[in-house]
Design a protein around this nucleic acid. Structure first.
Lengths: 359, 359
DNA sequence: CGGTGTCATCGAATCGATTTGACCATGCCG
DNA sequence: CGGCATGGTCAAATCGATTCGATGACACCG
């Protein structure tokens, strides 16, 4: 029995005070259903008397069988996930769209706690649908936990999941376009700075064996797109899409890795943050951009602090992607069959790419 | 009656199948209470047979009277709020601490929809407690909505609210310390770039009348701290803590506002992002840092892209602040009396401040 | 052998709402 | 005036779990 008496007024108490039945009082609040204005006013008056501020969401949710909550699994600690402007813009679109339907976003850290242990929220929190924003790995414990609970899932960016809508970007085509741009400018020695591969964070040059491990998307897609056009002279793996990692990688690639006359003349990075780090590294090494080295990114972020350089980048509709994810979630809740979509991307040239140096 | 039959197994069905009572089955899952291992196994076996994956959170929540959800009101559209690294770090600490208690974070846009209309989530979503991360304004409609529903509130950074714990930083002392540092270096013409004042975003120089409108914290506190030491020769208001706004402000302050021989020799900004913008503006104007102009910020962010400059800044324990907010929320839920705290800050000198130019 | 205590299990109340179908006045029509 | 809609109101079932107090079995002790 209720340990705590919880003297909060309930709909029943309001009804009693208004001299009507509970069902009538409910009708007054829900707005739907026939009710005379006088009765409604009577109920509202009783409610304000008692300090009742509307139906208890918990009761309503149980009855309805819906929580009105969308679980959003962010692939990492929030502190890391949100440091990435890409993540932030997607989330923005997502929250916006869900808000129009009165749905709330519950943040769920998707961090792997080791040995297939996942965040308890995945196991116990109430949610009508979950959105896996950063794609899924093979044998993803996060996905497994949700499927066990038969929570419908929307997957962003990555491997398709049986029965779940997928929202992705044309990563492969975009990456190919960026490299084609560089090749068109005469570059032949092109280095690649890549996003994380999957489980197990590493940084450093990548050999053929490691190359086969690229599990995470969009990494794998962007790698494929680049290789559709040219084979990079080197691929440098990074542990996260952060400026400092791009800087470290480019410092090695441009500085110590090979003699200056074999130095790559262009760098294509899997993300704008990595590319920005490469620009900074080049500056620090006294290299001119784009005269000595060209840098292309991916994401189409607005990076005012890179001034006066403007990054050449593959623009992607991030906010739109978030909105599509949200729409898919809404469709799933409504029982509609959502469709997978692939959003277009496009190269936007900036000032960081130019003709290859004459040698 | 249930329109949708919802063929999901329930605890009752599991109990029936296991040949025990519902209460016993509940005991088996909750883990608390005496129960023989055989009975427990019988229940679990029946559960796996039926594909039952644990108690429905909605039923549990209603019974318990707790949703296990903490509403976090972010002061703006998430797209803007999360672009601020300060916000992100606080949120990170918050999510972390709440996660240890199995509590989830529900994101609530605190954006003002005009005429005292707030996000519907504030009115209807289930939450055990709300955290107002970015402080409250006077007559904050957000706060009003929560109080109407008698949702307990934790306030971060700002005006204290009757009956709610407050977690803040020693903004005033920190700002004073930064300015004292500049004065100690011989600076006398110090300009201030300020965070937004409150309702109604503006940008530009501030006169005495506008100065009195500073409603939002920490703006007001940092302004006070600065004035504890010196009166700025000019205060420039910005609409948000973003690099581009700092850049715009500093371009005006250092470039066109006064003749070069009256130019301020130092800029103190209310945030690191604004300060970084000022550094970039100075570079663009061909001014050397710190020889021609010194720049001090506030937040203690790690800004690798500002390389080779390292910002002089007032360091604040952001993640820790998030954790303290979370702890206060946990205390409130548990019925404990949480205490307000004020976290210490400290100046960390970088390379962007130096002796005032000889004139 | 009766009394007492322990322990696993169960029955029933409860959390706070929504929703359906029944019910009872009306009002209208023929 | 009887029959039939119409429309507002209500009683009761239901959502899915938790938890209290009762029950019965069993062992132990005097």
């Amino acid at each position: 029995m209720g340990r705590t008496p919880s003297n909060r007024p309930t709909l029943a108490r309001v009804a009693e005070r208004a001299g009507v039945s509970v069902s009538t009082a409910s009708l007054a609040f829900s707005g739907s259903g026939p009710i005379t204005p006088e009765t409604r006013d009577k109920v509202f008056a009783a409610a304000t008397d008692l300090g009742y501020t509307g139906p208890n969401p918990l009761g309503r949710q149980l009855r309805r069988g819906r929580s009105g909550i969308v679980g959003v699994v962010i692939g990492d600690h929030p502190g890391r996930a949100f440091r990435d402007p890409v993540a932030v813009q997607v989330l923005d679109g997502l929250v916006d769209v869900l808000g129009t339907e009165g749905l709330g976003v519950l943040l769920i850290p998707g961090v792997d706690l080791g040995e297939d242990t996942v965040d308890p929220l995945l196991e116990t929190a109430a949610m009508d649908v979950a959105v896996l924003v950063w794609g899924v790995l093979t044998d993803d414990p996060t996905l497994a936990a949700l499927q066990r609970r038969s929570v419908p899932v929307v997957v962003g960016e990555g491997r398709a999941v049986e029965g779940s809508p997928l929202v992705e970007l044309e990563d492969r085509a975009g990456a190919a376009e960026a490299v084609r741009h560089l090749v068109g400018l005469g570059h032949t020695r092109i280095a690649e700075i890549s996003l994380p591969f999957g489980r197990g964070e590493r940084s450093g040059p990548v050999d053929a064996e490691r190359l086969a491990c690229a599990d995470r998307t969009p990494t794998a897609h962007r790698m494929a797109g680049i290789r559709d056009v040219v084979d990079p002279v080197i691929t440098w793996e990074t542990p996260a899409s952060l400026v400092e990692h791009g800087r470290d990688a480019a410092t090695e690639i441009l500085g110590t890795w090979v003699p200056a006359d074999e130095r790559p003349t262009a760098i294509v990075a899997h993300s704008d943050l990595l590319a920005a780090g490469a620009v900074i590294a080049a500056r620090e090494l006294g290299l001119r951009i784009p005269e000595d080295v060209s840098v292309a990114g991916f994401d189409g972020l607005d990076l005012p602090w890179l001034s006066p350089d403007v990054l050449t980048s593959v623009h992607q509709p991030l906010r739109d992607k978030g909105m599509k994810l949200g729409q898919a979630a809404i469709d799933l809740i409504a029982g509609r069959e959502p469709t997978s979509v692939s959003l277009p991307v496009g190269l936007v040239p900036g000032t960081t790419t130019g003709p290859a140096p004459a040698r």
